[in-house]
Write a protein that binds this DNA or RNA. Structure first.
Lengths: 235, 235
DNA sequence: AGTAAATTGCGAACACTGATCGCAGTTATG
DNA sequence: CATAACTGCGATCAGTGTTCGCAATTTACT
C-alpha cells in the first residue's frame, strides 16, 4: 500500500513525499532494451485486472489476485507497474477508450456534451467498478487525453476559459458517475436489502419528526420527465 | 476488513452475504444495560476519528491509530462499532451535523438548494477527507436525516416525485463534492507537483495532436462568471 | 568474442490493515 | 447470590501493498 504518510488504506490523496518523484505510469517506458523479453505486458495486466473488476468488484483487484489470474508471481507485477494505483490508472484509461469518439459533433456544446455523457454512462454501467475508482486529479492516459480533447472540441464554440472548460468536463464526469451509481443500485441491487433499508429509514423518519422524508419515501409516483419544468420552480 | 466476497480493500459495495444481517450502526443500541460502564462512547470515537482525518487524511483513520489516539486497545473499538465502515458512517453523520439547518427557507427551491449546497461545500473544505468517503447509498444517521429533511422541505413547492427529489439531493451532493475537490486541489495543492503535471500533460497534448487540450492548458484567461451565458451556447 | 550493464521472474520477507476469539474482571438483573 | 451480560484487551488470523536480493537471461559496449 501507499506508505506516503506511514499508513495504508484506500487510494489516498495525501501530501506527496517531497523526496519522491512519483512519476505517472505514462511517463515511464514500458520496457527497457537490455534484459530478457518480458512474458507479459501492461496491456495484458490491464485486461486481466478489468476482467477481474468486472466480475468481482474493484476490491478483487489486488496484486495477488491479478498475479494469480495472470499465472505469475505477485512480485513480478512490479516489473510492469510501480504501484497498485498505476494499475487503476491503466484500467481507467482502458475503459475510457471504450467511449466512442468517432461520433461527429453537431455544433451545440450542450447537446454534444450530453451525448458524450450518455455514452460515458454506458461505459460506467458496463464496468460498475468505475464509479468506485477514487477520482485522482490529472492522471490522464492516452485514451483519457483523447476523451478530453473530444470534450474540449465540443465546447469550442463556448466563450469560456480553458480552466473552466476542464472543470466542466470533470463536473460532467462526476455527474455521470452519480447517475451510474443510482442506476446500478436500483437495477442489480438486492431488492430485499434495499427494501429493508428503505423501510427502516421511512420508519425512522416518520417517528422522529421528518414529515417530508416520510412523505418522499411513501411517494410511489413516477415523475414524467417530459413535464418537469425547466427551472424547477412550482408549476 | 470486509470479508463479504472473501477479499479486502477499500470500502466496497459488493453483494451482501445473504446469511449476514448487516445492520447499520444506527440500528444497534450503543450500550447494553448489564456490564460495567463503558470508558468511551461512540461520540468520543467519532470525535477522535474526525480529528485524525482532518489532520492526516482518511487513510489515517485505521482502527489501530484511532485506538492509540483514544488511549485504548485496538480490539476495544469493536465494543462500540462493528466495522470500520461504521466509523465512517459516524464521522460522515457528525460533519453532516455541521451544516447549519436553521437558515430559514426563502421559498424558491433552486435558491434554497444552492444556499444549502454552499454551506455543505464549506463543510467539505473544513473536512477534506469528506470528499474521499466512498458514497454508500442510504446510510443516513440522525444528522443526515435532518439534512435530507431540510432539503426536501426546500423542494416542497416543486412538482416532483419523492424519488426524484431524493435523487436530486444525491446529485447535488455529488456536485458539491466535485466542487470541493477542485477547490481543495487548487488551494492546498502542491504547486510544484501540480505545475509539473500540468506541464507534462500540456507537452503530451501538443505532441500528440490534441490541439484543444494544448490550447486549454495554455489559456491563462480568467472567465468572469458574470458574463457566462446561461445556456452555454456561443455568445 | 567477451565483459559489463540492465532487465526479468520470483520466493521471502516487512509493515501494515480489518476483524475474531477467548479470557479475566465488572456490573446489573432475576 | 448466582447467573447472564457486558467490557477491555492481548493474541492471533487472513489479507493487503511493497521491497529486497538472487539466479538467470539478454542486450550493449568495448
Amino acid at each position: 500500500m501507499r506508505h506516503e504518510a506511514g499508513e495504508a488504506g484506500c487510494r489516498t490523496r495525501e501530501v506527496d513525499d517531497l523526496a519522491q518523484e512519483h512519476v505517472t505510469v505514462w511517463a515511464r517506458p514500458e520496457r527497457g532494451t537490455r534484459g530478457p523479453a518480458a512474458v507479459h505486458s501492461r496491456a495484458e495486466l490491464t485486461a486481466v485486472a478489468v476482467e477481474l473488476a468486472d466480475r468481482s468488484g474493484l476490491a478483487a483487484v489486488s496484486t495477488r489476485q491479478v498475479a494469480r489470474a495472470l499465472g505469475t508471481g505477485q512480485a513480478s507485477l512490479y516489473r510492469y507497474i510501480s504501484s497498485r494505483d498505476d494499475l487503476l490508472d491503466l484500467m481507467t484509461d482502458a475503459v475510457a477508450g471504450e467511449v466512442g469518439l468517432d461520433v461527429p459533433l453537431g455544433g451545440d456544446p450542450v447537446e454534444d456534451l450530453v451525448a458524450l455523457a450518455s455514452r460515458t454512462k454506458a461505459v460506467h454501467l458496463r464496468h460498475p467498478w468505475l464509479s468506485d475508482v477514487p477520482p485522482e486529479p490529472l492522471r490522464l492516459g492516452p485514451r483519457g487525453l483523447d476523451y478530453l480533447e473530444y470534450a474540449l472540441r465540443a465546447m469550442e464554440p463556448a466563450p469560456l476559459s480553458g480552466r473552466i472548460k476542464m472543470e466542466i468536463v470533470a463536473l460532467m464526469n462526476a455527474l455521470v458517475a452519480q447517475f451510474a451509481r443510482t442506476e446500478l443500485q436500483t437495477s442489480r441491487g438486492n431488492a430485499s436489502r434495499q427494501a429493508a433499508q428503505t423501510a427502516h429509514l421511512g420508519e425512522a423518519a416518520s417517528r422522529g419528526g421528518h414529515p417530508h422524508v416520510a412523505a418522499a419515501m411513501a411517494d410511489r409516483t413516477e415523475t414524467d420527465p417530459a413535464q418537469v419544468p425547466r427551472d424547477l420552480s412550482s408549476r
